[in-house]
């Protein structure tokens, strides 16, 4: 295979993911509505939550809307990754995954392209959300939008890889609802997306430790700090480790052919 073939494949997979996103406008809009509801309604109700509390990153007492915005960015990435995984389960059930697997290019490369495409659609949703959040007086430093980009991209890769791993474990589309309840919600709520970890430290210790070992915690913290022109080194290190482990596990361990065919085998082959 020529090197250019890899490039054409990469751009083709990206283009398809973007085309699908544009065709499914309701999906794009609902991806924005969810965090905006949290920002406009939930945050309004809990405005006094952080009153008098100084979070070192922000320097002075901070509005709750400002605090939860990076968490909601994480929410967008998390949900988009899981939804993209859902589309892979759908692809497999519909058989279009088979077409992808008959490509002469290495499967690990095809999956890497798929991961990148998922990350790119997350990125678009995140920046659309941040543009609307600006109207709610969530205005990080202008340069912060740029410095947050690699953090968002890394987070999207990590969660996309997690989604791919889950997609390889799920046999039927219906089972995905269970993943939302047992994976997505615990990941989101056991993190500093909605409140600082010190809140949990003062209260329930096991919840605090669950937050500490949750990789999503570090995705959110890396984005939060990057958005305000700061580098959270421990969060970066955990992100790098999670990125390495999960992308490798997803790309090398993902074998949809094995599952999709072996599962059907006993029925009449």
């Amino acid at each position: 295979m020529k090197n250019s073939a890899y490039l054409f494949c990469f751009s083709g997979v990206l283009k398809r993911e973007l085309q699908r996103s544009l065709q499914q406008r309701t999906r794009f809009i609902s991806a924005l509505v969810r965090p905006l509801l949290w920002l406009a309604v939930f945050a309004a109700g809990f405005r006094g939550t952080l009153e008098g509390m100084v979070i070192p990153l922000y320097g002075s007492p901070v509005d709750y809307e400002v605090y939860i915005t990076p968490g909601l960015v994480g929410m967008i990435i998390l949900f988009n990754s899981m939804q993209s995984s859902l589309s892979m389960v759908y692809d497999r059930e519909m058989g279009s995954m088979r077409v992808l697997l008959t490509s002469p290019l290495p499967r690990s490369y095809l999956l890497f392209c798929k991961l990148f495409a998922i990350a790119l659609t997350s990125l678009l949703q995140v920046y659309a959300f941040l543009a609307v959040a600006f109207l709610f007086d969530v205005a990080p430093p202008p340069l912060g939008y740029l410095t947050a980009l690699p953090a968002i991209l890394m987070g999207a890769f990590i969660l996309g890889a997690l989604g791919l791993l889950l997609a390889s474990l799920i046999e039927q589309l219906e089972n995905f609802a269970g993943v939302m309840n047992f994976v997505v919600f615990p990941l989101f709520f056991l993190s500093p997306a909605l409140y600082p970890l010190t809140f949990m430290q003062d209260g329930n210790t096991w919840v605090y430790w669950a937050c500490v070992i949750n990789p999503f915690t570090y995705v959110v913290e890396l984005i939060r700090h990057a958005l305000y022109l700061d580098l959270n080194t421990p969060a970066l290190l955990v992100n790098l480790a999670a990125f390495t482990v999960l992308t490798n596990a997803a790309v090398l361990g993902f074998d949809p052919a094995r599952r999709m065919l072996n599962n059907r085998a006993p029925k009449g082959r």
């Binding site: 295979m1 751009s11 283009k15």
Partner: peptide, 23 residues
């Protein structure tokens, strides 16, 4: 089994296939 992407056009389906073939 049908393996086309229902939400994409005829041409888009072919373009995607060509891309993953390295064309």
């Amino acid at each position: 089994q049908p393996t086309l992407d229902l939400d994409l056009s005829v041409l888009q389906n072919l373009q995607y296939h060509g891309a993953i073939q390295g064309m």
